[in-house]
Design a protein around this nucleic acid. Structure first.
Length: 702
DNA sequence: CTTCTGCATGGTGCC
DNA sequence: GCACCATGCAGAAGT
C-alpha cells in the first residue's frame, strides 16, 4: 500500500496495491504489488511528472522500492490527480486503454487524523457494483442486470486531462485541495466525458456525501446549472454522455424514476427521461425544482452526482457559485464556486505563482467581491433572476484544464470572454468586463452633480446637519479639483470642443456639455482660440495627481469593505462615501474629483451621497444600517416639522377665527374650524396632515 | 391565465 | 461538419 499523509488537509491518499492489479499501457502490463511497486519514471512528460510526484508523495516509506516505469509505459489517462482510473487488461487495438476501473473515493472518516481523510482505493473489479439497486424504482426487473452488463462493457477512456497534469507539474510542491477526478469509465456510453463534467470533489464534500457511513463514494459527474436547469421548469438537462454512462439505460422517452439522495440524506425521486433531439437524445431529470429549492440552488451553482458503493445509491451534491476569496481562505478545501472553480482550483494549485494568484484575484466574482462597486453591480445584475452566473465560459474552463490557461493568464489584458452579448454567452461575464463596468461606475460617480440651481436645505437631526435636495443628482461635466500652491482651491474643466483645460471657480457646477464659450468666469479664455493656461507639463501633472487620487480612493474603498465583509450594498456605499470624504480631507490630497456635492462634509451619509444612481439596492424596511436609520430619522424629523407647521397654521387660523367670531364662541368654533378650515382652505395640507397622522400612528405602533 | 410538456432551434465546442 | 445542449415556443392541461 502506498500511503501519503499530507499535513495540509489533503488527507491520506491510499492506494491499495492489493486491489491494484495492473496498468495497461501500450500493450504492456505493469504489475504493481505490495512488495514491489515500480515507479513510473516519467521523464519530462508533464503528466508523468504529475504522476511521479503524486506517487512520490504517496510513498512515505523510504525503504519502499520506487515505482519504476518507462515513459512509454505510462498511459496519460491512467492516473490523474485524485482520479485513479486504472485500466484492466483490456486493450484497444490502437494500444489505448479500453476499459478502466472506476475511480473509487472512499471517504474514510474513521481515520484519526485531524484533517479530512480520504482514501482513494483503486478498485479492481467494482464494475459489478456500479449498478443502481436502490436507484431504479420501477424499471423492469432486468434493469440491474442490464446495468451490470453495461457497466462491464468496455469503453473508451476519456482523453487525458493534460492541463490538470500540466498544472501539477507547475505545482510541483503542492497537492491541490480540490480534486479533478476523472469520472469512472463505465456504463453504456462510449462517448468521452467532456472535462467540464468531470467531478471536482473535495474531501469535505466527500465526507459530506458519505456522512458517517463507510460507503465508498464514486464521483460520477457534475454540472453547472444553467438558467433553464435552475428555472421553474424543473428540468435539469443531463449531459448525454453522463446520462448514458452513469444512469440506467432507458429506451422509452418516458424514462423511469430515479431515486437520488441529497447530501442531507433526503431522498428525491426524479424522472430520468429523454427527448428525441435530431437523431440524438436529450436527457433530462424532471421534477428537480423542489430539490433545487431545498438546496437553494440557482444558475451557476454546480450539482454533482456521485454513487455510493456498494449500495449503488445515487447521491447528489452541490456547490454554490459563491466565489469569495475570503471563503477560499477560510475553507481551503472547499470549492467555493462551481463556475469559477477553475479559478479557485488553480489559484490554489498555483498559489505560489504570483502572476496567477494575482489573476485569480482579478477573477473574484463580484458576488463575493470586496469591492463595493462590484457588489453593487453584482446585486444589480443578479436582480435579473440569477441569470448572471459570473462564470467564465465553459471554454475557459476547458482551456484551464487543457493547459491553455497559462498563456491567457499571462496576458490578462486580453479579454477572455469573447462575446458578452450573444445569447448563449449572456450569462457569462468576464471579470475583466466587470472591472470595466466598475470603472464605468467610478466614472459615473465622478459625473454626478447636484442640480446647479438647487441649494440644499439643511436639516438638523440629533445634532447632525443633513443637506436635503429636492431634486435628484444629475450628471454633470467631469472636473478636477486642485489645490494651489498658495493654498486656495481651484477647479479645472476640459472644453468639449477644443479639449483645453480651463480654470474655474471651485464652486461652479458645470452642465454635461461645456465648452470654452461657456466660460463666464474668465473672459480672456472664453473662446477655444484662447491659449491654454497650463503648460503641457502642468496638465500632465494635474491629470496624474487626479489619477493618483482616484487610485487611493479606490484603495480606500476596498480596504474597509474587506474588513467588514458583512456590509454591502448601500452600507458599503455609505462607508465608501464617508471614506471618500475622509480621503478628500486627508490633507495630503492636492487634487480631488467631485464625486459628491462640494458642500458635503466628512461623514455625510445623505441619500445623495450614498444612493446609487440606478436606485437599485434599496434596503429592507427592517434594515437598521446607518443609512436606513438616517433616512428613517430624517423622515421622522420631517414629519415632526410638518406636524409642527400644521399645528402652527391651525393655531393661526384658530386665532384668526377667534378674532372674527369673538371670544364667546371660541370653544365651539375652534373645534369645528379645525376640520372646516383645513379642508376648505387647503385640501393639500389636510391630506398631508392625514398622512402625518397615519405616519405618527404607524410610528407609535412601531 | 398559468403551468406543463414535448419538441425545435440555434449557438457553441469538439473532432 | 457534427453533436451537444441551452433555451425558446407552441399546444395541452390545469387552475
Amino acid at each position: 500500500m502506498i500511503e501519503d499523509e499530507k499535513p495540509n488537509g489533503f488527507g491520506i491518499v491510499k492506494i491499495d496495491a492489493g486491489q491494484l492489479h495492473s496498468i495497461s499501457a501500450d500493450n504492456q502490463l505493469i504489475t504493481i504489488s505490495n512488495e514491489n511497486l515500480k515507479l513510473m519514471q516519467l521523464s519530462n512528460n508533464a503528466e508523468s511528472i504529475g504522476l511521479r510526484q503524486l506517487l512520490q508523495l504517496h510513498n512515505d516509506d523510504s525503504s519502499r522500492s520506487l515505482l519504476q516505469m518507462k515513459q512509454e509505459e505510462v498511459l496519460p489517462p491512467a492516473i490523474d490527480i485524485g482520479s485513479t482510473c486504472l485500466s484492466n487488461t483490456n486493450q484497444a487495438s490502437n494500444g489505448s486503454v479500453q476499459a478502466v476501473k472506476p475511480a473509487i473515493f472512499k471517504a474514510n472518516i474513521s481515520e484519526t487524523l485531524p484533517q479530512t481523510n480520504l482514501s482513494i482505493s483503486l478498485g479492481s473489479s467494482l464494475g459489478n457494483q456500479n449498478v443502481f439497486p436502490g436507484s431504479v424504482v420501477d424499471e423492469k426487473g432486468k434493469m440491474s442486470s442490464v446495468l451490470q452488463q453495461a457497466s462491464k462493457s468496455l469503453h473508451l477512456l476519456p482523453k487525458p486531462p493534460k492541463p490538470v497534469l500540466a498544472g501539477l507539474e507547475v505545482n510541483a510542491g503542492m497537492v491541490p485541495q480540490i480534486r479533478v477526478a476523472r469520472p469512472p469509465v463505465e456504463g453504456r456510453g462510449r462517448n468521452q466525458l467532456l472535462p467540464r463534467y468531470w467531478p471536482r470533489i473535495t474531501d469535505k464534500e466527500l465526507q459530506q456525501i458519505s456522512g458517517d457511513s463507510n460507503s465508498t463514494i464514486v464521483p460520477l459527474f457534475e454540472k453547472v446549472l444553467s438558467a433553464s436547469d435552475a428555472g421553474r421548469i424543473g428540468r435539469l438537462v443531463l449531459p448525454k454522455a453522463c446520462a448514458e454512462a452513469y444512469f440506467p439505460p432507458i429506451s422509452q422517452p418516458e424514462g423511469l424514476p430515479l431515486r437520488i439522495q441529497d447530501v442531507k440524506g433526503k431522498e428525491w425521486v426524479f424522472q430520468f427521461r429523454f427527448w428525441p433531439n435530431n437523431n440524438s437524445r436529450m436527457y433530462v431529470l424532471e421534477g428537480v425544482t423542489p430539490c433545487m429549492q431545498s438546496m437553494q440552488l440557482q444558475a451557476g451553482d454546480t450539482v454533482t452526482f456521485s454513487r455510493m458503493d456498494p449500495e449503488g445509491k445515487l447521491v447528489m451534491g452541490f456547490r454554490k457559485a459563491t466565489n469569495n476569496a475570503v471563503v477560499q481562505e477560510n475553507l481551503p478545501s472547499a470549492i467555493p464556486n462551481g463556475t469559477l472553480s477553475s479559478e479557485s482550483l488553480f489559484s490554489g494549485v498555483f498559489e505560489n505563482l504570483p502572476i496567477i494568484s494575482g489573476y485569480s484575484g482579478l477573477l473574484q466574482s463580484p458576488k463575493g467581491s470586496t469591492d463595493p462597486h462590484l457588489n453593487a453591480l453584482s446585486k444589480h445584475l443578479s436582480s435579473t433572476g440569477g441569470d448572471i452566473s459570473w462564470n467564465k465560459s465553459g471554454k475557459h474552463e476547458d482551456r484551464i484544464r487543457e493547459g491553455l490557461l497559462l498563456p491567457s493568464m499571462l496576458t490578462p489584458e486580453r479579454k477572455r470572454t469573447r462575446n458578452i452579448g450573444s445569447k448563449s454567452k449572456r450569462l457569462l461575464i468576464d471579470s475583466q468586463d466587470a472591472l470595466e463596468l466598475k470603472l464605468t461606475w467610478e466614472e459615473a460617480q465622478d459625473l454626478l452633480r447636484p442640480p446647479p440651481s438647487i441649494k440644499p436645505s439643511v436639516v438638523t437631526i440629533e445634532d447632525h446637519d443633513f443637506e436635503e435636495y429636492d431634486e435628484p443628482p444629475v450628471f454633470g461635466k467631469r472636473s478636477i479639483f486642485a489645490v494651489r500652491s498658495t493654498g486656495g482651491q481651484e477647479q479645472w474643466a476640459q472644453c468639449d470642443s477644443c479639449s483645453k483645460w480651463r480654470r474655474l471657480p471651485v464652486d461652479v457646477l458645470l452642465p454635461p456639455k461645456w465648452t470654452c464659450a461657456d466660460n463666464n468666469w474668465d473672459q480672456s479664455r472664453s473662446s477655444c482660440s484662447a491659449p491654454e493656461e497650463l503648460t503641457p507639463r502642468e496638465i500632465e501633472n494635474l491629470l496624474r495627481l487626479n489619477r493618483d487620487f482616484k487610485k487611493r480612493r479606490i484603495a480606500a474603498f476596498t480596504r474597509p469593505t474587506q474588513e467588514h465583509e458583512s456590509s454591502s450594498g448601500l452600507d458599503a456605499l455609505a462607508n465608501a462615501a464617508i471614506l471618500g470624504d475622509n480621503a478628500d480631507n486627508s490633507g495630503t490630497t492636492s487634487v480631488a474629483t467631485t464625486t459628491k456635492h462640494p458642500r458635503h462634509r466628512p461623514g455625510c451619509s445623505c441619500i445623495v451621497c450614498i444612493q446609487p444612481p440606478s436606485g437599485k439596492g434599496k434596503h429592507k424596511p427592517t434594515c437598521t444600517c446607518v443609512v436606513c436609520m438616517t433616512v428613517k430619522r430624517r423622515f421622522k424629523t420631517l414629519t415632526m416639522r410638518k406636524k409642527k407647521r400644521q399645528s402652527e397654521r391651525e393655531a393661526e387660523i384658530a386665532q384668526r377665527n377667534q378674532q372674527a367670531w369673538g371670544p364667546s364662541e371660541e370653544a365651539e368654533v375652534d373645534s369645528s374650524s379645525k376640520h372646516v378650515s383645513s379642508s376648505h382652505l387647503n385640501p393639500f395640507e389636510n391630506e398631508a396632515r392625514s398622512a402625518n397622522e397615519l405616519e405618527s400612528k404607524s410610528q407609535s405602533s412601531n
